[in-house]
Simulated assay, not measured.
Amino acid sequence: MTTAAKTHQEPAVYVYEAPVRIWHWINAFSILVLAVTGYFIGSPLPAMPGEASDNFLMGYIRFAHFAAAYIFLIGFLGRLYWALVGNEHARQIFFPKIFKRECWEGAWHELKWYFFLNKEPRKYVGHNPLAAISMHILFVWGSVFMIFTGLALYGEGAGFDSWQYTYFSSWIIPLLGQSQDVHTFHHLVMWVIIVFVMIHIYVVVREDIMSRQSLVSTMISGWRTFKDTRKIEGDEDT
């Protein structure tokens, strides 16, 4: 049965498969660790008192940042793989249907709904068009940028003979200017992702309350439930 054919007679629809849900929560934790440790790497703590051998706080912060970064990288690659082999909803943020008029019309409707200019939201089984487009631009490509620049910066410390330097540092740093420029861009995009996450959390909670369809619980159980009998929009909008 297609999404467009589903009606209120179907009380719940299975949307997000287990790999997507597991990735989502691991990814959220990784971003939290990366943001906190990245902030302190960019704005280090003042010198610690006492013997240097007794203080390794910044070393632990950097280690946590690098460990979370590799978890983030592996998770992103796994999520990209699942976008190719998973169900239709697993592909939405990687391959939004931006060449369809319905996608942009639906995104405009959702934007007006978020700004309280539309009285009624539309029902979608997966991501609504605005969510799919914004996640693709800000999260997917933002993640790619952070992974590439992060590996380029890591390659400087790993040395000229490291694979990180060979495949990333050797061309990304000259492309963006110099090492400090890469640090600056990496730091700025971190803030872009932080703002995106804050908006994402707000919208998800808001929609769970106001749109009469489950969002938070859906990313836990995988099932989307609806609280009214309004028509569900077809996947062509996303």
Score class of each variant (00 low, 15 high):
S43M: 07
R79G: 04
T7E: 10
S170A: 08
I201N: 03
S217H: 09
L117M: 15
V125I: 15
D235T: 06
N27K: 04
F148D: 03
T2W: 01
I61Y: 08
Q180G: 07
P44K: 05
T229M: 04
E105Y: 00
R206M: 02
I147H: 01
K97T: 13
K112C: 03
R230H: 14
W223C: 05
I193E: 02
G106D: 03
A158G: 10
H24N: 05
H24T: 08
F116D: 06
N87I: 06
Y81S: 02
S43W: 11
A83N: 09
T7D: 11
Y39K: 01
V189K: 00
F145C: 00
L32K: 04
A68V: 04
M135N: 11
T166M: 11
E105I: 07
H127D: 11
F116A: 13
E233T: 12
V182L: 10
R21E: 04
K231P: 08
V216K: 02
M198H: 00
F63G: 09
D161S: 15
E110H: 14
Y154M: 14
N128S: 06
V125W: 02
Y70P: 04
P129S: 11
I74C: 12
F185G: 00
K6V: 15
K100N: 05
K227L: 12
K119D: 11
F72P: 03
V20R: 07
D237R: 10
T149Y: 08
I22A: 06
S211M: 09
D228K: 07
D235K: 07
E120C: 02
F196W: 13
G106R: 02
V15S: 02
V203M: 12
S170N: 06
V203A: 13
K6L: 15
M1W: 06
Y124A: 06
Y16K: 10
S134V: 13
F40Y: 15
D181M: 14
A69T: 09
R206L: 04
I172A: 01
E236W: 09
T238A: 10
I209Y: 06
N27D: 10
T225E: 15
F76R: 05
V189G: 00
S30C: 15
V192A: 03
Q180S: 13
W23G: 01
I209D: 04
A152N: 01
F29Q: 08
L80C: 10
A47F: 02
A107D: 06
Q92K: 03
R224C: 10
Y165A: 11
G78F: 13
K112S: 00
G157K: 03
E88A: 13
V195P: 00
I26M: 14
R230G: 04
A90D: 13
A83W: 05
W141M: 01
E17F: 01
A132Q: 10
D235L: 10
D237T: 03
Q213T: 14
F40W: 11
F226Q: 12
S162K: 14
E51K: 13
I193V: 15
P11R: 12
V192L: 13
V204F: 03
I194M: 08
E236P: 02
S211T: 11
M48K: 11
V195H: 00
V204A: 15
H187Q: 12
E110D: 12
D54V: 00
E105V: 07
Y70Q: 09
D235W: 01
I22S: 01
D237Y: 11
S169N: 05
R101F: 03
K119L: 13
M146S: 06
H8W: 09
W25E: 02
F116L: 10
V13R: 04
S179M: 09
T184S: 14
L215D: 01
M146R: 08
K123H: 13
